[in-house]
Design a protein around this nucleic acid. Sequence first.
DNA 1: GTAGAACTTGAAGTTAAGTTCAAGTCAACC
DNA 2: GGTTGACTTGAACTTAACTTCAAGTTCTAC
Lengths: 155, 155
Amino acid sequence: MVSDELTVSQVARRSGFAPSALRFYERRGLISADRSEGGQRRYHRDVLRRLAFIAAAKHVGLTLTEITQALESLPQGRTPTKADWTRISRHWRARLDAEIASIEKLRDGLDGCIGCGCLSLQRCRIANPDDLAAADGSGAAFLPQPLHPDQHPGR
Amino acid sequence: MVSDELTVSQVARRSGFAPSALRFYERRGLISADRSEGGQRRYHRDVLRRLAFIAAAKHVGLTLTEITQALESLPQGRTPTKADWTRISRHWRARLDAEIASIEKLRDGLDGCIGCGCLSLQRCRIANPDDLAAADGSGAAFLPQPLHPDQHPGR
DNA sequence: GTAGAACTTGAAGTTAAGTTCAAGTCAACC
DNA sequence: GGTTGACTTGAACTTAACTTCAAGTTCTAC
C-alpha cells in the first residue's frame, strides 16, 4: 500500500478517534476517503489535519454541526490558511470568554445568596420562587440562564 | 378545592416547569403528589420549594441524578435546613469555580497557540497531532480535556 | 346534566454523538 | 490456498431529560 494511503485503523490510532467515529464523521460529511479495489476505505494523510481541527473544535465545545459549518466556510472547503486559522481561533476564544463570564455571573449570584442571610429555602430568592414571583407568572425567572442551554428538545 | 391543594397546571405555572416535566420528576422520585377522588394529582405547596431547589440545581449544571441524591441526602429527605442550604450552596460554588478554571486553562492554551507563530494547521500542535505525537499513540492527547465530558456512551 | 377544559396513562419520539452488533467480505502472510 | 485479522454495511442501541401522542376520564361551570 502506498504510504499516503491510510487504513481506518491507522487513522484511528493516529487521530485518537474510534473507527466508528470516523465512519460517522464520513456520513456527516466532515471527512472523506477513497476506496480500495475491494471497497475498503483508504484515507489521504490530509484527513489527519481535518481530524485535528475537529478534535480541537470539540474540545472548545462546538457541536458537530458547527464544526461542519466551520469546515464548509473554508476557502475551497479545503486546507485552512493561516488567516483562516487565526480567525477561527479568535472566534473560539470569544466563545470561551463568554462562557466564563456566564458561569462567573451565576457563581456571583450564588455567592450573594449564601451571604445574604436568607439561607432558608423558605425565604431565599434563588431557591424559592415565592408567591410574589409566581403572581406575575415569572416563577424562577430571575435565576441566571443555564450554563449550557443544551439542545435537548425539552428544557 | 382547599388552597393548599395545587393542580398540575397551577404548579406548572408557578414553578415554570411543564406539566410533562412534573410527571417525569414524579416518576423519578424528585417530587410527589396526593390524588383527588378521581385520581388527579393534587400537590402540596411544599412542592414549589422542592421545584425551586431543582431549578437552581439545574442552573448550576447538576444532572437529575445528582439532584435526586442531593434531595435524598437531606435530614429526613425533607425541607432543607439553613445548614443544609449553606453546605449545598458552597458545594455548588466549588463546582462552578472548577468549571471556570477548566475553561480558563483551555482558553489560555488557545491563546498560546494563536500567538506562537505556528498558525498553519500544518505545524500547529493544537491543530495537528503530527507523526511525533502519533508515533507513541498519543494522537491529540496533549489537548485539554473537553469542557463538559458528557455522559453519552460514545466519546 | 352537559359541554369543554383539564386531567389521566403508557408508549413512542426527540437530539447529539457515537457505539454495538450481526453477518458477511477483503487483505496479507505463510 | 487457507487462516486470521481487518474491514464492510445497515440497523438498532445508548444517555439525559423530557415532549408528544392517542385514547380515554374527571372537573367545573353554566
